[in-house]
Design a protein around this nucleic acid. Structure first.
Lengths: 213, 213
DNA sequence: GACTGTGAAGCCATTCACAGCT
DNA sequence: AGCTGTGAATGGCTTCACAGTC
């Protein structure tokens, strides 16, 4: 297996293929071609094959891919062959929504600790979890071997929270605060910015109406 | 002003620059260089200048950019020189979080209608809004001139909801369901996939630990 | 005949490096 | 001297096109 640097765009698409394959599998489909995957997720067939080729040869020429196998391979590649415990900081509405989001569970993510520094929120329950004060974070991280933390706090708290997470052993951060986090090189950080995509839409709408003049 | 095709990556960064400039402005900063913006948002200075160059010449050589002016320009370019009414379908936890998300308001987005087909949710209040049945959507769209719709429903409902939105005049869709929507060419669609970025993190964590062997 | 896997080509985005202003 | 604006160079991702396999 050649392990060149894999483009992040490829990993993103792999995640999408993987979920599409799960859907096919649930629907009882056993074999699929790169063209069908492409059609299903909105990319080109060559793109699908090229993406998969970074990781090996999974198909059969003249036939296509075995859905169940390819689903397992893609999950394995993404590191989803086991469960991932997560912690989340920020028990506001967004934090609550993320805790109850089914899409995480179905991919093997499980939030095992929710934290806040707001006394009115500490002690509340979200599903079977109790919102804990920040001081309890180190224990929860150790107990479950948590590597990934989610930041769902107001902007002003985000940096401090992320720093605290890292100090206690968190290795990767998913940040919902729309500002860049300043963390050590070796920490993996990805941002989910809820309004950027809206602004792409408004940009494109504006551009279109300009063309109609 | 040359209006070549603008890369989507440039629009994404423009949105980020724009918010960073708002922050600088609030902090009383009046002038900023491409290097400082770059530092603040985590890209290269040349990238910042190149991105801005798609839209005009906003700086002064030897000096930099006027923060307030550049902030206004970027907002204008993104179409944020006026407010945008939005509708949202899906009054679950995610929908609730989005309705109460401050980051939208501060950029001129305002949710003016929330819809659901679940009778237990219809009539509930989210802030000053009442959750309405789907049939009310056409009126709300017309009344407020809504162009953008947010899909925050369970997966199984997403396609139908999006189609219904478009049939009633919606021109752009922000989709939180992790599946591709099938809509007419001329409709702008962007997806926010909450678990893809988590899977990029798990991929990278797995890759790192593999290197330690 | 159908479909994968892949080198080569094409294309697009980013970075470089410097001319042009202030 | 300092910083922008930009053509040229680079680098990287995507598409093409076809050999290889079933």
């Amino acid at each position: 297996m050649k392990t060149l640097r894999v483009p992040e765009a490829t990993v993103t698409r792999l995640s999408i293929y993987s979920r599409y394959l799960e859907r096919l599998d649930r629907n009882g489909v056993t074999t699929v071609s790169s063209g069908e995957i492409a059609e299903g997720v909105g990319v080109s067939p060559a793109q699908v094959r090229k993406d998969l080729a970074y990781f090996g040869e999974f198909g059969t020429r003249g036939v296509g891919y075995n859905v169940k196998d390819l689903m397992r391979y893609t999950k394995k590649i993404l590191g989803l062959d086991h469960n991932w415990p997560l912690i989340l900081v920020g028990a506001g509405n967004l934090g609550y929504a993320l805790c109850t989001y089914k899409g995480f569970n179905s991919r093997g993510f499980k939030i095992v600790g929710v934290f806040d520094n707001d006394l009115t929120k500490i002690g509340k329950r979200i599903n079977e979890l109790e919102v804990l004060p920040m001081e309890k974070m180190p224990d929860v991280i150790k107990e479950h071997g948590v590597k990934i933390g989610i930041v769902a706090t107001p902007n002003r708290a985000a940096q401090e929270v992320a720093t605290y997470m890292v100090k206690n052993g968190i290795q990767a951060v998913l940040n919902f605060a729309p500002l860049p986090l300043n963390l050590p090189e070796h920490i993996e950080v990805r941002n989910v910015d809820l309004s950027v995509k809206l602004e792409i839409l408004t940009f494109n709408l504006g551009f279109k109406s300009a063309q109609n003049v």
